[in-house]
């Protein structure tokens, strides 16, 4: 459930960009990774390293907010930079879809290697912010405080995005562009602006996920986004790529399936189990569980 919440937040970035641009932004996994580094550096900037004792009370709340905000800012900025430097020039030239895909993969590898060169290939550790104390038990299984914080924060962010897309002018612009970009433009929607907003939203959510990941998993390395990117992309497809609520459902479903597979069959069978279910679902519902396009999603 906890990892499922993180998958879902990252999946929203894939699904938003796909909904608007029909582009699988494979560099989104590095947007997540950079957010985690941003969160870690923010902690270092205020003097929190691994030797620091966990904070309490209001200080704890402030630090948690800072970690998530720093991740959001780092990822949001990177997402916009990627859009401006990598994708917009291709759009202006009317490049084929394949060019976008290769550019995305190239940007992903470039960012990984840059961070490996700058910060090394070993993991960097986050300081412990939340003690691993058990809050309550569900059917005998202990639920720890960090898990509650991650899931609750993630659900909050998802709800905020859902309301934003459904109720705001920019959200309507995103939906209109996803449904029919040419008509949207004729109706006065600034497509370039909408695309930038879409990348920012996806980046900010990935950054939020990265901050929560840092709080929960407590390490990050240069390729730390890769597996999460693959899993989140899978979650987006499982739920229905291009569908905001589908991404949420897909993320949580994948997290639960993985956990169930690991418990029943053993850790090494976790992915086999989860991806077998994915294949079976797609055989019967090729457009995913909800299968709806972003443009048709309703509040």
């Amino acid at each position: 459930m906890t990892l499922g919440a993180i998958y879902a937040l990252i999946a929203l970035g894939y699904t938003l960009v796909y909904g608007v641009l029909r582009l699988i932004n494979f560099a989104h996994s590095e947007v997540f990774m950079v957010g985690a580094f941003g969160s870690l550096f923010a902690l270092h900037a205020i003097g929190f390293d691994t030797a620091h004792a966990p904070p309490h009370g209001l200080v704890l709340v402030g630090v948690l907010v800072l970690v998530v905000l720093a991740g959001m800012i780092a990822s949001g900025v990177l997402a916009v930079v990627l859009e401006r430097l990598a994708y917009r020039p291709l759009r202006k030239r009317g490049a084929p879809r394949l060019a976008f895909l290769i550019t995305a993969i190239g940007a992903s590898l470039l960012l990984q290697e840059l961070f490996a060169l700058r910060y090394g290939r070993n993991a960097l550790a986050f300081p412990r912010l939340l003690a691993r104390s058990t809050a309550f038990k569900i059917f005998g299984a202990p639920v720890q405080v960090p898990q509650i914080v991650v899931v609750a924060s993630a659900i909050g962010m998802m709800l905020a995005l859902d309301r934003f897309v459904a109720n705001t002018k920019l959200g309507r612009g995103i939906r209109a562009t996803a449904q029919d970009p040419e008509t949207a433009q004729l109706m006065g929607v600034n497509i370039n602006r909408i695309i930038v907003v879409t990348f920012i939203l996806g980046g900010v959510l990935a950054g939020g996920a990265a901050g929560l990941y840092g709080i929960y998993v407590e390490t990050i390395r240069y390729n730390g986004g890769f597996i999460y990117g693959i899993k989140a992309f899978t979650a987006a497809v499982l739920g229905g790529i291009g569908n905001v609520r589908g991404a949420l459902l897909g993320g949580f479903a994948l997290g639960l399936l993985e956990n169930y597979g690991a418990t029943v069959l053993g850790g090494e069978w976790k992915d086999v189990f989860a991806f077998t279910i994915l294949v079976v679902v797609l055989m019967f519902r090729p457009t995913g569980l909800l299968g709806e396009q972003l443009g048709r999603s309703r509040a």
């Binding site: 998993v217 390490t219 597996i227 690991a262 418990t263 053993g266 850790g267 090494e268 976790k270």
Partner: peptide
């Protein structure tokens, strides 16, 4: 038991 080293969490 065995684990998959690519995972972050080894709950099982």
């Amino acid at each position: 038991t065995s684990i998959n080293e690519k995972d972050d969490l080894f709950s099982a």
